[in-house]
Amino acid sequence: MSLSKADVEKVASLARLKLTDEELSTMTRQLDQVIQYVQQLEELDTSGVQPMAHTADLANVFADDLLRASLPRDAALANAPKRDDECYLVPPVLGD
């Protein structure tokens, strides 16, 4: 299986990236190389093996439902690239 430019363009859109034509070519070549390498995993028989998403053998970690102070609004918004006194601002979100 090898990666096409169109595949890469689709993924870029999914990942909200915009690549120039040149970046797209380089990216396609480099990703393809890595994908080819990674495909060696296929040779392993993993039937019956449980996927391991965590190494920590833990479960049922909870916090109690006790209120803690939130950030003051100005501190919350301090890093926002565009804001007014109350909210973050973005180009119009239309529809739903």
Partner: peptide, 11 residues
């Protein structure tokens, strides 16, 4: 009031 009930986690 908007954005008065947030913290690093929920932001």
């Amino acid at each position: 009031e908007p954005n008065t009930q947030t913290c690093p986690v929920c932001i």
